[in-house]
Protein backbone atom coordinates (compact mmCIF):
# COMPACT_ATOMS: atom_id res chain seq x y z
CA UNK A 1 0.00 0.00 0.00
CA UNK A 2 1.31 3.43 -0.99
CA UNK A 3 0.24 6.23 1.37
CA UNK A 4 1.01 9.88 0.92
CA UNK A 5 -0.06 13.34 -0.02
CA UNK A 6 -1.75 14.15 -3.32
CA UNK A 7 -0.03 16.39 -5.86
CA UNK A 8 -2.72 17.25 -8.40
CA UNK A 9 -2.01 18.27 -12.00
CA UNK A 10 -4.28 18.93 -14.99
CA UNK A 11 -4.50 17.66 -18.58
CA UNK A 12 -1.69 17.38 -21.17
CA UNK A 13 1.19 17.82 -18.73
CA UNK A 14 4.17 17.57 -21.10
CA UNK A 15 7.68 16.40 -20.30
CA UNK A 16 9.05 19.89 -21.00
CA UNK A 17 7.23 21.21 -17.94
CA UNK A 18 8.03 18.08 -15.90
CA UNK A 19 11.71 18.77 -16.45
CA UNK A 20 12.58 21.78 -18.64
CA UNK A 21 15.28 21.18 -21.27
CA UNK A 22 17.68 23.62 -19.66
CA UNK A 23 18.16 21.05 -16.88
CA UNK A 24 18.89 18.18 -19.27
CA UNK A 25 22.62 18.79 -19.46
CA UNK A 26 22.96 16.41 -16.52
CA UNK A 27 21.46 12.99 -15.88
CA UNK A 28 22.05 12.63 -12.11
CA UNK A 29 18.75 11.68 -10.45
CA UNK A 30 19.04 14.05 -7.48
CA UNK A 31 19.76 17.00 -9.77
CA UNK A 32 16.77 16.18 -11.96
CA UNK A 33 14.52 15.83 -8.89
CA UNK A 34 15.52 19.31 -7.70
CA UNK A 35 14.19 20.87 -10.90
CA UNK A 36 11.09 18.74 -11.35
CA UNK A 37 8.07 20.94 -12.30
CA UNK A 38 10.31 24.00 -11.75
CA UNK A 39 8.27 26.25 -14.03
CA UNK A 40 4.67 25.27 -13.31
CA UNK A 41 4.86 24.07 -9.70
CA UNK A 42 7.93 25.58 -8.00
CA UNK A 43 6.79 24.29 -4.58
CA UNK A 44 6.91 20.66 -5.76
CA UNK A 45 10.60 19.76 -5.46
CA UNK A 46 10.89 21.20 -1.95
CA UNK A 47 7.54 19.99 -0.67
CA UNK A 48 7.22 16.44 -1.97
CA UNK A 49 7.86 13.52 0.40
CA UNK A 50 8.73 9.89 -0.32
CA UNK A 51 5.48 8.00 -0.86
CA UNK A 52 3.48 10.91 -2.22
CA UNK A 53 0.99 10.35 -5.02
CA UNK A 54 0.71 12.33 -8.23
CA UNK A 55 -2.76 12.57 -9.72
CA UNK A 56 -3.30 14.07 -13.16
CA UNK A 57 -5.80 14.38 -15.98
CA UNK A 58 -5.54 13.25 -19.58
CA UNK A 59 -2.40 12.57 -21.64
CA UNK A 60 0.12 12.90 -18.80
CA UNK A 61 3.74 12.98 -19.99
CA UNK A 62 3.13 13.99 -23.61
CA UNK A 63 5.83 15.44 -25.82
CA UNK A 64 9.54 14.75 -25.60
CA UNK A 65 10.70 11.18 -24.93
CA UNK A 66 13.10 12.37 -22.23
CA UNK A 67 13.28 9.66 -19.59
CA UNK A 68 14.60 12.36 -17.30
CA UNK A 69 10.90 13.19 -16.69
CA UNK A 70 9.79 9.98 -14.91
CA UNK A 71 13.25 9.73 -13.31
CA UNK A 72 12.85 13.22 -11.83
CA UNK A 73 9.36 12.43 -10.53
CA UNK A 74 10.44 9.14 -9.00
CA UNK A 75 13.64 10.55 -7.52
CA UNK A 76 11.61 13.39 -5.98
CA UNK A 77 9.66 10.78 -4.00
CA UNK A 78 6.47 10.07 -5.95
CA UNK A 79 5.68 6.36 -5.80
CA UNK A 80 2.70 6.13 -8.15
CA UNK A 81 1.02 8.33 -10.75
CA UNK A 82 -2.72 8.07 -11.27
CA UNK A 83 -4.09 9.72 -14.40
CA UNK A 84 -7.00 9.52 -16.76
CA UNK A 85 -4.52 8.58 -19.52
CA UNK A 86 -0.80 8.67 -20.23
CA UNK A 87 1.21 9.51 -23.34
CA UNK A 88 2.73 6.30 -24.62
CA UNK A 89 6.47 6.98 -24.44
CA UNK A 90 6.09 8.25 -20.86
CA UNK A 91 4.06 5.14 -20.06
CA UNK A 92 6.86 2.86 -21.27
CA UNK A 93 9.57 4.90 -19.61
CA UNK A 94 7.88 4.95 -16.21
CA UNK A 95 7.38 1.19 -16.06
CA UNK A 96 10.88 0.62 -17.47
CA UNK A 97 12.39 2.51 -14.52
CA UNK A 98 10.05 0.89 -12.00
CA UNK A 99 7.61 3.77 -11.45
CA UNK A 100 4.06 2.35 -11.57
CA UNK A 101 1.20 4.15 -13.30
CA UNK A 102 -2.52 3.63 -12.86
CA UNK A 103 -5.17 4.72 -15.34
CA UNK A 104 -8.31 5.84 -13.54
CA UNK A 105 -10.72 8.40 -14.89
CA UNK A 106 -12.84 8.25 -11.75
CA UNK A 107 -9.93 8.93 -9.38
CA UNK A 108 -8.56 11.65 -11.65
CA UNK A 109 -11.93 13.43 -11.67
CA UNK A 110 -13.05 12.52 -8.13
CA UNK A 111 -9.86 13.90 -6.62
CA UNK A 112 -9.45 16.81 -9.02
CA UNK A 113 -9.48 19.40 -6.21
CA UNK A 114 -7.84 17.21 -3.53
CA UNK A 115 -4.36 18.70 -3.87
CA UNK A 116 -2.45 18.31 -0.59
CA UNK A 117 -4.91 15.81 0.91
CA UNK A 118 -3.99 12.27 1.96
CA UNK A 119 -4.55 9.29 -0.30
CA UNK A 120 -3.69 5.61 -0.44
CA UNK A 121 -3.10 3.38 -3.45
CA UNK A 122 -3.21 -0.41 -3.60
CA UNK A 123 -1.35 -1.22 -6.81
CA UNK A 124 -2.16 -4.91 -7.00
CA UNK A 125 -5.86 -4.29 -6.45
CA UNK A 126 -5.92 -1.18 -8.66
CA UNK A 127 -7.61 0.77 -5.87
CA UNK A 128 -7.24 4.44 -4.95
CA UNK A 129 -8.61 5.82 -1.66
CA UNK A 130 -9.09 9.50 -0.97
CA UNK A 131 -11.70 11.83 0.54
CA UNK A 132 -13.34 8.81 2.14
CA UNK A 133 -14.09 7.38 -1.27
CA UNK A 134 -12.71 4.38 -3.11
CA UNK A 135 -11.90 4.59 -6.81
CA UNK A 136 -10.89 1.77 -9.12
CA UNK A 137 -8.25 1.81 -11.84
CA UNK A 138 -7.73 -0.28 -14.94
CA UNK A 139 -5.65 -3.32 -14.01
CA UNK A 140 -1.93 -2.96 -14.75
CA UNK A 141 -1.22 -5.15 -17.84
CA UNK A 142 0.56 -8.42 -16.98
CA UNK A 143 3.78 -7.49 -18.75
CA UNK A 144 3.95 -4.14 -16.96
CA UNK A 145 3.34 -5.84 -13.62
CA UNK A 146 6.27 -8.15 -14.38
CA UNK A 147 8.48 -5.12 -15.05
CA UNK A 148 7.47 -3.55 -11.74
CA UNK A 149 8.01 -6.84 -9.89
CA UNK A 150 11.46 -7.15 -11.43
CA UNK A 151 12.30 -3.56 -10.44
CA UNK A 152 12.30 -2.24 -14.01
CA UNK A 153 13.42 -3.27 -17.50
CA UNK A 154 17.13 -3.56 -16.69
CA UNK A 155 16.57 -6.17 -14.01
CA UNK A 156 13.89 -7.86 -16.10
CA UNK A 157 16.31 -8.27 -19.01
CA UNK A 158 19.12 -9.44 -16.75
CA UNK A 159 16.80 -12.06 -15.33
CA UNK A 160 14.86 -13.11 -18.42
CA UNK A 161 17.31 -12.63 -21.29
CA UNK A 162 20.92 -12.46 -20.27
CA UNK A 163 20.54 -14.93 -17.39
CA UNK A 164 19.11 -17.61 -19.65
Amino acid sequence: MIQGKIWKFGDDIDTDVIIPARYLNVSAEAELAKNCFADIRPDFAGGVSVGDILIAGKNFGCGSSREHAPIAIKAAGIRVIVAESFARIFYRNAFNIGLPLLESMEASRGLSDADGEDAAVDLAAGRIEGRGQVFSARPIPDFMAKLIDAGGLVDYIRKEKIGK
Binding site: S65, R66, I89, R92, N93, N96, L153, V154
Partner: peptide, 10 residues
Protein backbone atom coordinates in the same frame (compact mmCIF):
# COMPACT_ATOMS: atom_id res chain seq x y z
CA UNK B 1 8.93 5.24 -33.11
CA UNK B 2 10.33 7.12 -30.15
CA UNK B 3 11.29 5.37 -26.94
CA UNK B 4 13.08 6.28 -23.72
CA UNK B 5 16.68 5.75 -22.76
CA UNK B 6 16.09 2.51 -20.83
CA UNK B 7 14.41 0.97 -23.86
CA UNK B 8 17.25 2.17 -26.05
CA UNK B 9 19.91 0.84 -23.68
CA UNK B 10 18.17 -2.54 -23.72
Amino acid sequence: TGVGSTDLGA
